[in-house]
Amino acid sequence: MIEVKAVEKKYGRKKILKGVSFTAKKGEITCLIGINGVGKTTILNAIMALTPINKGQILIDGKTLDKHTFEKITFIPDAITMLPHMTIAEAMEFMDDFYHCWNQERATELLGFFRLNQSDRISSLSKGNTAKVNLLLGLALDVDYVLMDEPFSGIDMFSREDIANVFTSHLIENRGVIITTHEVGDIEHLIDKVVLLDDGMVSKEFSAEEAREIEGKSVIDVMREVYQR
């Protein structure tokens, strides 16, 4: 389980996170939703110790992050994480070099899944394919937790479909996933849990199926209630 406990974060004088708490379980897809600039990416960065927090605590399976944690959790940012001049094959080799948990078989499978060409250079890829390479490099690690920042933003329709297919496949099965998005529409059926962020706080944390079953509300209905209050 990933536990984010009362996390506060300031940028200069501006408090961007004002005590954010939520949990994300293994085997579940947790979706962080909020308008742009609400600090979703900051939360993911903080979990990975890519940015310091001012207050609070983040635990991964009960422990704070250290170098070994990176064999257990991975982060797929909305940015290129390899050098532009590298080919996809070279990027995969780099991962294989450093990570014990790199799964070459799965990487090869993902290449096929996303219809990527190993010899393509990262710099030559479309936005959609760049996102797929990022996903490939993250998902081919045998890690328990995967964090994804805006995996669907700014991507063509067919790439979106390909990426959405990841969520319904064995590539995700049994892992704990946190994804951020500002647009939940077409992934509503893919997620287990929703964490709504507003004004630097968690305004609601709920199960998508429960909201539908108990309250008869879609995720968007709940969002509307929370954000248009």
């Binding site: 990975m48 070994h68 944690t69 940015a79 290129i80 450093f98 990570y99």
Partner: peptide, 16 residues
């Protein structure tokens, strides 16, 4: 620039 290799470097399972 567009290159954000630092993400990868900081997430390597080795002491930073």
């Amino acid at each position: 620039g567009k290159n954000t290799f630092i993400y990868r470097l900081l997430m390597l399972p080795t002491t930073r």
